[in-house]
């Protein structure tokens, strides 16, 4: 099947979605996806960030589709023509979706562990507007403790349903889900249950924002101060292939390996993620590379960095000589040597 996205043509298998086809092409035409996750079934269609314009339905039925379509859920047809960033309607809609996602998002990025690898940050960097039109108070939720390893910040949640699908598809008993509806729908366990499951930690990796973060990494560092390394260990439960986030010799965080679309390559178990924090536990393969524009590259060890030298006056802490004399009592000797005289 032939599909054209923003003028780029590509041959794809039947059953491919527009988003998947766009990812094969790559580049700027790839629609942002906040809820779709290719490794999980039945995700997508909810965030509406990936809306695209289908300007030609197919070779057989060339009529354009009247509404913007969620590219993650719309299958391609032969001869379909899609406009992603080349359509003003699409850009307008993405701007609108970004604004909707942000009106109730706390914007506490300075204290959020996800900052730097947050999909919502990327989305608002690309499609956001700098002015705020929402005057009301943002909605807030009561904090809820969902266990020893995972921190839930419901205020930051954008209800992508990814973590629910993780629990449904990777773990045996799902104890959390979405309670309530409308703008007060929330991720919660019923009732205040702890999430305790061998693969529950993957919820952290799939979360596009900082709603689910790693308690063992909480407030330890910013992601761009860490050096990520690929590493592996023999694990009986999972593949054991992870990314270690190092600070010096210390492993501050363990995550699964994520690809350029921020999706994990292989899900890992909680033991690998939370319990093995000694460098001797792991076979380190080498540094992990990130896409060009990621803030994580700020700490790029592949590039030679000059040592920073802070130049100061030699006795800056003691103050200037003339000031010291001014505040001293003139009649009392200043040094031991003077007093002996």
């Amino acid at each position: 099947m032939k599909v054209t996205i923003d003028g780029h043509e590509i041959e794809v298998e039947p059953g491919t979605t527009i988003l998947q086809a766009a990812r094969m092409i790559g580049g700027e035409s790839v629609p942002p996806a906040m809820c779709y996750y290719s490794k999980l079934e039945d995700t997508g269609g909810k965030c509406r960030a990936c809306l695209v314009e289908v300007s030609k339905g197919s070779e057989a039925d060339p009529r354009p589709m009247p509404k913007l379509m969620a590219s993650c859920k719309t299958g391609v047809m032969d001869g379909m023509e899609v406009k992603s960033i080349s359509s003003d309607r699409v850009l307008e809609a993405r701007k609108a979706v970004t604004e909707f996602l942000l009106i109730n998002h706390p914007l506490d990025c300075p204290v959020c562990d996800q900052a730097g690898e947050c999909d919502l940050q990327n989305l608002s960097f690309q499609h956001g507007i700098s002015q705020k039109r929402f005057k009301e108070d943002k909605r807030t939720f009561e904090p809820e403790n969902i266990g020893d390893n995972i921190q839930l910040h419901m205020n930051r949640c954008i209800l992508c349903y990814r973590c629910v699908k993780v629990a449904e598809q990777l773990t045996d008993d799902r104890v959390h889900g979405v309670c309530g509806r409308g703008d007060h729908a929330q991720i919660s366990t019923y009732i205040s249950n702890a999430i305790d499951n061998e693969f529950s930690g993957n919820m952290i990796d799939v979360c596009p924002v900082g709603a689910l973060t790693d308690k063992t990494f909480r407030f330890k560092s910013r992601v761009w101060f860490n050096k990520p390394y690929n590493a592996h260990r023999n694990c009986t439960k999972c593949s054991g292939k992870v990314t270690l986030w190092m600070f010096g010799e210390e492993i501050q965080r363990v995550t699964a390996r994520k690809d350029e679309f921020h999706e994990v390559e292989e899900f890992i178990c909680n033991q690998c993620r939370f319990d093995h924090k000694e460098p001797t536990d792991w076979v380190i393969e080498g540094p992990r590379k990130f896409e060009k524009f990621s803030v994580i590259n700020q700490n790029n060890y592949t590039r030679k960095l000059d040592k920073v030298v802070i130049k100061t006056e030699e006795h800056i802490l003691e103050g200037r000589e003339q000031d010291r004399i001014k505040i001293s009592m003139k009649n009392i000797p200043y040094t031991e040597h003077e007093s002996k005289e």
């Binding site: 906040m34 269609g45 909810k46 965030c47 509406r48 960030a49 609108a96 979706v97 909707f100 996602l101 009106i103 109730n104 929402f134 009301e136 909605r139 954008i158 209800l159 349903y161 979405v178 309530g180 509806r181 409308g182 703008d183 007060h184 729908a185």
Partner: peptide
């Protein structure tokens, strides 16, 4: 609003 998709969840409240 069921709260599933962002424009409706956030927009109706707004």
């Amino acid at each position: 609003s069921c709260g599933q998709c962002s424009p409706c969840r956030e927009g109706t409240g707004w």
